[in-house]
């Protein structure tokens, strides 16, 4: 492939992006469209626990939750995946066996990414060797800001080469990139380096995912698709805790990338508390009554 000059990526007009988002947030998603959307959201969630305080038990609990979102409604889907640190991958694989729920693992010195490539490779290897289906790596933001786009590109490509069949999600940590132009450029670097997914955030930095950020990433994915014919997935992570906002993400996805992206092969939500809000909305739609958090298990 022709060398891409990442110093010359397409420009983004932030006010124009906001304008477009205001069209999405003004939309009204009601009735059967809402219910269907809510089911899709559940099925797109990477149920996530990434705490220093995580334990085997905690991981087991969220694995159970991923498979049994709300047992009173047996037609509910499972989440798309469970997302944990590499040392919990084995546990998650065991717990989720046969459920179809994927195991995703953050790696590459998550969340800062401040380590040499060899350390990162070791980290990734642990995750994959333990059976992770998906690897969520972070880019080197320091190198990015110093303009060493080749380094960022090569690092992603190296990781991609090391993970075999596992799918690679590349976390841009958009909250550290400074503006939308950088988010566009980082998206391009990640995709051309081989990312299967581009993901906004670690969840450790604010702001995390926002609609404007995701729109910029979707437009990058669309241009990449136009250029190469390869579909890259998108994962907003962090900051999406209510169903209404999640529905707006889906609508933005539908209007930007179309129906082929509307599934968990190409779209994920990285979230820990979104699932319960979505469940409350589903139960509200079915019973007509507004719900209380106390009736939905935390994990």
């Amino acid at each position: 492939m022709k060398q891409i000059n990442f110093f010359d990526t397409p420009k983004i007009d932030q006010v124009g992006i906001d304008d477009r988002i205001s069209r999405i947030t003004a939309r009204s998603i009601k009735k059967e469209a809402k219910v269907k959307g809510l089911y899709m959201i559940l099925n797109m969630i990477d149920l996530t626990t990434l705490e220093g305080a995580d334990t085997e038990d905690k991981v087991k609990h969220i694995c159970y939750k991923a498979m049994h979102l709300h047992d009173e409604y047996p037609d509910l889907p499972t989440t798309a995946a469970v997302c944990v640190y590499p040392n919990f991958v084995k546990t998650a694989v065991t717990e989720l066996k046969g459920s179809g729920v994927k195991v995703a693992s953050v790696a590459t010195a998550f969340p800062s990414g401040q380590a040499d490539t060899q350390t990162k490779l070791a980290d990734v290897k642990e995750a994959v060797d333990n059976g992770a289906d998906e690897v969520d790596m972070v880019i080197s933001r320091g190198k990015y800001h110093s303009g060493d786009y080749d380094f960022v590109f090569n690092e992603i490509a190296t990781i991609k080469a090391a993970i075999g069949k596992a799918r690679l999600k590349v976390i841009l940590e958009t909250g550290e990139l400074g503006n939308l132009d950088n988010i566009r450029r980082a998206s391009d670097i990640a995709m051309y380096a081989g990312a299967d997914f581009i993901k906004t955030s670690t969840g450790k930095i604010k702001p995390a995912a926002t609609l404007p950020v995701i729109l910029v990433m979707m437009e990058a994915v669309r241009d990449y698709y136009y250029n190469t014919g390869r579909m890259v997935g998108i994962k907003p992570a962090g900051g999406i805790s209510n169903a209404k906002l999640a529905l707006q993400y889906l609508l933005l996805l539908k209007e930007t990338l179309g129906g082929k992206w509307l599934n968990n092969t190409y779209f994920r939500f990285g979230a820990s508390s979104l699932a319960n809000d979505v469940l409350m909305q589903i139960v509200k739609q079915k019973t007509g009554n507004y719900q209380s958090k106390d009736y939905f298990s935390k994990d």
Partner: peptide, 13 residues
């Protein structure tokens, strides 16, 4: 002409 709104009062794009 648009005025970009980043930083300052925590727009957080």
């Amino acid at each position: 002409h648009p005025i970009e709104q980043i930083a300052g009062a925590g727009s957080g794009y």
